[in-house]
Amino acid sequence: MSRADSHEHFLDAASVEPAVFALRPDYRALLLVVDGLQAAPSNPASEELLDLAEAHARTLLGECAVEELPHVAAWREAYRAFGAKPQRTRNSLEALTRRAGEKLPRVNALTDIYNAISLLHQVPIGGEDPDLYQGPARLVRATGDEHFEAFANHAPVTEHPSPGEVIWRDDLGVTCRRWNWRQGPRTGLSDQTETALFIFDALDPMTNEALHAAAADLTTALTLASPGVTVSQRLMSAQ
């Protein structure tokens, strides 16, 4: 099987269980697999894009409180629906927007780019390495027995999600807790990543057109940074 075929197979095998759509029928996940990435430190191009995104975030925060931003508010409601307290565990969009009110740390070109797109389009985006997955990516409601490998005080620890919590997982365990709150290091991006999986999480009022526009801008930015990348994508929804 070619790499392109394997990535198409990975996307085809991804799923969202009905219990998640029962919780939020308006939920959509747009998955992108981008192959041929070239590792690079933060650079003038990624810095310029992130500067633009931070300025956009500051403009939004000057108009209303972060929790009143439409997509942030929708995610807060979704978190409450499965028992999470959004004031304690913030969805990734809210956390990033709050931090961008000042200045985000520069990590590397890849991370800087997808953080910038998340801010500019106000959509949660997770970045992972699909080659590190064991089996397909699945969004489910947890039983509470699943394993989530994390770090606490620089030491590895095993956590378990709360029963009913919405989690991304593979055959080995949890890859991201509370929908888009905390990604695990096991499948995380690194300086050795050549293929990345990007998960765009959308709720109303974000439209499919806006969701695809965000993905298109990410694709454009990554193509400029790594000419020759190939991109596969899939939209999953209740429909």
Rank of each mutant, 00 (worst) to 15 (best):
W168F: 14
P161K: 10
N153D: 14
A155E: 15
G135Q: 03
G135L: 05
L132W: 07
P161V: 03
H160G: 01
T143F: 02
V157I: 15
E128D: 11
I167M: 05
E149C: 05
G164I: 01
T143G: 15
L172H: 11
D171E: 15
V166Y: 04
A155S: 12
T143H: 05
H154K: 13
P156Y: 10
E128L: 15
S162N: 09
E146S: 04
R141S: 09
E149P: 00
R141E: 08
R141G: 02
H147R: 15
H147I: 14
D171I: 06
N153P: 00
L132R: 15
E149W: 11
L139D: 02
G127C: 05
V140S: 11
G164M: 03
F151Q: 10
E159I: 04
W168G: 07
T158M: 10
Y133C: 07
E159W: 15
H160M: 03
G164C: 06
D145Q: 12
Y133R: 07
V157P: 10
I167H: 03
F148R: 01
E146A: 01
E165R: 07
E146W: 06
T143D: 12
V166L: 14
L172S: 12
S162V: 09
D129E: 11
F151P: 00
A137H: 10
H154P: 00
T143V: 05
V140G: 03
V140N: 02
A155L: 13
R141A: 09
A142Q: 05
E128S: 13
A152S: 12
A150H: 12
D171R: 10
D170V: 04
G127M: 01
G164L: 07
D129S: 08
D131W: 06
N153C: 02
F151E: 08
G135D: 01
E146T: 03
T158D: 01
P156K: 08
E159N: 10
D171A: 15
G164R: 00
E146N: 06
D171H: 12
G135P: 03
F148V: 03
D170M: 05
P163D: 00
A142P: 07
S162Q: 14
W168N: 03
F151M: 12
H154E: 13
D170L: 04
V166N: 04
G164H: 04
P161W: 02
V140R: 12
V166P: 05
A142V: 02
R138M: 09
G127I: 05
V157G: 11
P130H: 06
P136I: 04
Q134V: 15
D170N: 13
G144K: 00
P163N: 04
S162F: 04
S162H: 08
P163C: 02
D170E: 08
H147Y: 11
A152F: 14
G135W: 01
Q134R: 11
H160C: 01
P156A: 09
T158F: 10
L172Q: 11
L132Y: 07
E149R: 13
A155Y: 09
G127A: 08
A150T: 12
L132A: 15
F148E: 08
I167T: 01
R169C: 15
L132D: 11
E149A: 12
L172G: 02
T143Q: 10
L139A: 04
E159R: 15
L172Y: 13
H154A: 14
A155K: 14
Q134S: 14
